[in-house]
Simulated assay, not measured.
Amino acid sequence: MNIFLSYGLLYLSNYLLAVCPEINNLFNLQIFSGNANNSLILIGGFIATVFVSPVCEELIFRGVLINKLKVIVPTTFAILISSLLFASLHPYGSIMSAFVFAICMAIFYIKTENILVPIFAHFLNNLFAEVIVILDKGNILFTNDFIMIVISILAIISGIVLTVALIGELNKIK
C-alpha cells in the first residue's frame, strides 16, 4: 500500500512542480553532479537503498530515537517525532509517504519489540521500489495516463486504508 501511496504522492508533487517550478528550487539539493548512468553508481545506489538504508535508518530512528524519546514523551509522540525526522530526510514528493512509512515501521517495532522486523519490512519496501524503477525503463509510470489514473486511484484507497489502520494502531499503543 505504501508503494501506491508513494507513487500517488509523486504524481501530485510532479503536478505541483509543473504548475509552480519555483518549488523545485526550495527542495532540489544536488549533491552529486557526475554521470548518473555510470553502472558503478547505479549498483552502489541499489546496494545503499536496498541493504544499507534499511539497517541504518531503522537502527537510528526506531532502535535508538524512539527508545530515547519514550523516556521523555508518550510512545505515540515518540513515534510521531521520529517519523517526522525520518520523513524530513527524504526528498520533496516522498516526504508524506516516508512519514506514513515511518509510522508503520515504528508500530512494527513497538508491537514486536524486535528491530529486525522493521529492518526486513524496510528492505522489502526499498527492494520493491527499486525493482519498479529498474523495470520502468521507458518511464511509463509517469507518462501513461491510464497507469497514472489507476495508480492514483490505488493511492487514494491506500491512503485511506493506511490512515484508518494507523490511527487504530496508534490508539492501541500505551
Rank of each mutant, 00 (worst) to 15 (best):
F101A: 15
I103P: 08
K68H: 11
L89W: 09
I60K: 08
M105L: 15
L59W: 09
I79H: 00
S82T: 02
A87Y: 00
A102D: 05
L69Q: 03
N67Q: 14
G93W: 04
K68T: 01
G93Y: 06
E57T: 01
A87T: 01
L89S: 12
I95P: 00
E58P: 04
V71C: 01
V71P: 00
E58F: 06
I79C: 02
I72S: 12
R62W: 08
A78M: 03
Y109W: 11
R62G: 08
I103H: 02
F61H: 13
L65I: 14
G93K: 03
S82K: 10
N67W: 00
P74K: 14
S88C: 13
Y92R: 02
I110H: 04
P74E: 06
C104K: 02
F77N: 12
I66F: 00
I81T: 05
M105Q: 12
N67S: 10
I95S: 00
S88D: 06
L84V: 10
K70R: 15
A98H: 07
L69F: 06
I81V: 14
M96H: 09
F86A: 06
L85Q: 00
P91E: 10
V73H: 00
L59A: 12
I107N: 03
L69W: 03
P74C: 04
S97R: 04
I72L: 10
K68F: 14
L65G: 05
T76R: 13
L69Y: 03
K70D: 05
I107K: 07
L69S: 04
P74D: 13
V64K: 15
I60G: 07
I107P: 01
A78V: 07
R62A: 08
N67L: 11
L89T: 14
T75P: 00
S82W: 06
C104F: 13
S94T: 11
I107L: 12
S88A: 14
P91M: 06
I95N: 02
T75K: 09
L84Q: 08
L84I: 13
S94K: 13
P91H: 08
F101E: 13
L84S: 15
F108Y: 15
I107T: 07
K68G: 01
Y92D: 05
N67V: 11
T76A: 09
F86H: 02
I103T: 05
H90V: 11
I81L: 14
C104T: 10
A87H: 03
F86C: 09
P91Y: 04
A98V: 10
R62P: 07
R62T: 08
S82R: 06
G63Y: 05
L85N: 02
M96D: 04
P74Y: 06
E57L: 09
G93Q: 02
H90R: 08
A106F: 02
Y92V: 07
I66T: 11
V73M: 06
A87C: 06
I103M: 07
L65R: 10
A106P: 03
A78D: 05
V73P: 01
F61W: 13
A102G: 15
I79D: 00
V100Y: 14
S83F: 03
S97F: 03
Y92L: 08
F108L: 15
L65Y: 05
V73C: 03
F61I: 05
V64S: 11
E58A: 08
I95R: 06
K70N: 12
F108V: 10
I60V: 15
